[in-house]
Amino acid sequence: MSDEHKVLLTIPMYPDMELAAAKTGSVLAELKDFNEEAVEEIQLAIIETCINASEHSQSEDKEVHIQFLVTDDQLQVKITDRGVGITADTLDGSRLLGTAGVHPDLRKRGRGLQIIKALMDEVMIESSPNGTTVSFTKKKATE
């Protein structure tokens, strides 16, 4: 049976508080000997998810709740806000683009979820008018 660690963290929606969540994720990943690249990817996914919650949730309690579950093989992160939920156009980034730039492929905003999906092995989003939970898993690379 694998050695499992669960950590719960609640951060306020203050500037840079996403770094506290990212640091917690990196400590847990390093505890299980994830490689340096995976640790950085986990940190970036946590940061992007926390920023999305802060920018778009309209949560009254202004808090982000994070659950980390690390085993010998993988790190699961579940990030929840109690905001108004997100819509399909928020998910694909089309609501966040702002003014068009010089190059259409250089979209300035709304790329957070794309980054998370590219860096993590599994990503799941559950949203309702009572809030949003983004869950993702990073599996440890096999040697």
Partner: peptide, 17 residues
């Protein structure tokens, strides 16, 4: 610079433009 978020990247894009 060990971490760059998507807002930081959007600012780099503005410099490129």
């Amino acid at each position: 610079t060990t971490l760059i978020n998507s807002i930081g990247i959007s600012i780099l894009i503005e410099i490129i433009e």
